[in-house]
């Protein structure tokens, strides 16, 4: 069977890219962190939720041909390291395009997409992906 609570508790970050900001050094984290890796214990209790805009830039990308089951219908698909406007770098799919139309440096923005499904009767997992601006 599939996973429920594990996916459910991440929804704020998966659905609308909620990250957090260290109240001590102002560094923004996405995915959110419980503790700031710069300020360590000085950041305890000071991590505040912050909305990530979703705009970013491709730092590197690959075209995946050997795909896990959840991604078979989309292969080959593009996975990229995206540097967000707010600073963090994250890993995500680039969709609605072809590899020839993107490159390192391409500006992208986040979109809300289906990521995977727990079979035909399980829940559907949604999250962020990116499209070229």
């Amino acid at each position: 069977m599939g996973e429920l609570s594990r996916m459910w508790r991440e929804m704020p970050s998966r659905y609308r890219m909620q990250g957090d900001r260290c109240g001590n050094c102002d560094q923004v984290y996405f995915p959110p962190r419980e503790i700031c890796p710069v300020c360590h214990r000085d950041s305890i209790g000071k991590m505040k939720d912050v909305d990530i805009d979703g705009a970013g830039e491709i730092l590197s990308f690959t075209v995946v041909h050997e795909a896990p089951p959840a991604f078979l219908r989309q292969k080959p698909y593009i996975i990229a390291l995206v540097k967000l406007k707010e600073g963090p770098v994250i890993t995500g799919q680039i969709v609605d395009t072809v590899p020839e139309e993107i490159d390192i440096g391409t500006k992208v923005r986040s979109v809300f997409r289906k990521i995977s499904e727990d079979g035909k009767s399980g829940v559907i997992h949604y999250g962020y992906k990116f499209v070229p601006e």
């Binding site: 219908r73 809300f112 289906k114």
Partner: peptide
């Protein structure tokens, strides 16, 4: 696209 549905 395969990752789009009414929710997205």
């Amino acid at each position: 696209s395969p990752d789009e549905d009414v929710a997205t």
